[in-house]
Write a protein that binds this DNA or RNA. Structure first.
Lengths: 293, 293
DNA sequence: CAATTTTACGGGCTTCGTAATAATG
DNA sequence: CATTATTACGAAGCCCGTAAAATTG
């Protein structure tokens, strides 16, 4: 079990391709193949199916371990290796759906500081945010997720990265204007148990996280893999399904009404992640946060 | 940053000696020295002081990361590598202070099962328990710790090992019989803030974990590094200090009275640790536990 | 048949052990 | 001075790239 082997395996598992993994790691396809073969020989288990490349059960377990190991290793390297952080430039990795009013206000506050802090904001999905942060190519990350009550959403292992709450907002249910519950002040999700829900993970719309929800909805699923908000609203307006949405992402759309979700108490949370050691560079950001969590 | 280098470094940090680390890992002193040198070259930081061998600040951070990385790697290997677990023999790694009445009852219950389960119980300190568990030489571990309220005590990273609560008991304060508070029904630790406490980590007596406690007690410290319970009682009886003790470890001793600690609500917790994947081998143990946490 | 993965093989580099040297309590 | 850590150096072994073969959609 070598680290390079694990890195190759993780990249193959993530990209779904030996070729792509090799390109990402600046290896040959051959080397990546040998890495995976070595891991399979060492464990005595088949870790991946080929054509199409997909994780086996054992491979999925190893991939989880590998992700955590490699993340922590990158964090350790970044923490320890001597670098010259430029305090005047703060590189921020941000998920697309994390940009709520609170976050925008935070960024404005930081930008207005004296001495001036130049913000380099880069929007990408969450795994990339975490990788940039761990690798040191970002000074902090702002990521979001949906969670029940006060539980922190598990972006990463606790203890590896420090986290501070930036914003927390309720979740709304999007209904067609003609829906019988459209005028409600608050909705209990149990009432809509048998409704057809749209599963839009990129827009943080994931009815599956509700604890007691029936895993396979009897009426079939509708999966929406885009980040286009208007498209989601159009689907709802045309009675193709209901959707959940963080309040901060809400826009007006004809034929769609938004009703607060009363139970379960889902919340959209935005967190600031940073390396525990390097507080000097992110000091201005941390100071600009409202309350110490 | 090679895994073998990290393993050598971790062993040096833990044992405090290049020679001991080399012996443990079946390496030469030379190899271990080269490993540490390579890490120091890669990070550009001095990680250890020599003579005596001790961690620098940077080294302590790396050692923490290394411990977690290596633990998870061992867990991954143990989970994945094909083995032939003998379901009739259950190897249990137990910390000395974890053997409360609840734990003894649990073990008796398992031993009485049909088909018969042969229990191989091995007592060692907590880091060793965790290493044996991760390495696969133990099927489960029973470890204990002191914590406030319902917070789990952090034996290891969550997510790497599964944990189930076995027993939870209050913490007692040990006082000389002549102490003015000896007759109390319950004690508030704040009242004894300025008392001289005996620090006996091996007996889970650690007044330092109280949140608002003054770190350097004005009256000096008394550290008791033995596991001998009678000696601790003798110290208390002779007015050399007060002590905390889990209720399960209490024995009668002349001149010493035990009073329940009312605030803070410290609890002695015993947890069963096992690998998430290998539930088949530990099934009998898990089933013998009272309530699913 | 084209794209992708696996296998064979060799050069180059890493790595560990031996042994000699240095440092220190 | 004995113990412990570092350095020098060479052989063994591993690792990755090239290139050819095999697999499969």
């Amino acid at each position: 079990m070598d680290l390079r082997q694990l890195r190759s395996f993780e990249a193959v598992a993530r990209t779904g391709s030996f070729t792509a993994a090799a390109a990402e790691l600046a290896y040959t396809q051959s080397a990546v193949s040998q890495h995976v073969a070595a891991l399979e020989a060492a464990t005595g288990q088949r870790l991946l199916t080929r054509r199409p490349v997909a994780l086996t059960a054992a491979g999925a377990r190893l991939a989880t371990h590998a992700r955590h190991i490699l993340l922590r290793l990158d964090v350790a390297r970044t923490e320890l290796v001597e670098r010259e952080p430029d305090p005047a430039v703060l590189v921020l990795a941000v998920t697309p759906t994390a940009v709520t009013d609170d976050v925008a206000a935070l960024l404005r506050r930081v930008r207005g500081l004296r001495p001036a802090t130049f913000l380099d904001v880069q929007v990408m999905d969450e795994p990339q945010c975490v990788r940039h942060l761990a690798g040191g190519s970002a000074d902090a990350a702002i990521v979001d997720g949906v969670t029940t009550v006060n539980q922190p959403f598990t972006a990463t292992e606790p203890g590896v990265l420090s986290r501070r709450l930036v914003s927390e907002q309720p979740i709304l249910a999007l209904l067609p204007a003609a829906h019988p519950l459209a005028g409600c002040a608050g909705i209990d999700l149990a009432v809509l148990r048998d409704a057809r829900w749209i599963d839009a993970p990129h827009l943080r719309c994931d009815p599956g996280i509700v604890p007691g929800s029936p895993d396979p909805p009897a009426t079939g699923r509708l999966r929406y893999d885009s980040r286009d908000l208007a498209g989601l609203f159009r689907l709802v307006a045309h009675h193709l399904g209901l959707a959940l949405l963080p309040q901060g992402l809400l826009v007006h759309h004809p034929g769609v009404v938004a009703v607060p979700l009363r139970t379960p108490a889902l919340r959209h949370r935005v967190e600031l992640l940073h390396l525990p050691g390097r507080t000097a560079t992110t000091r201005s950001l941390l100071d600009a946060l409202p309350a110490p969590s």
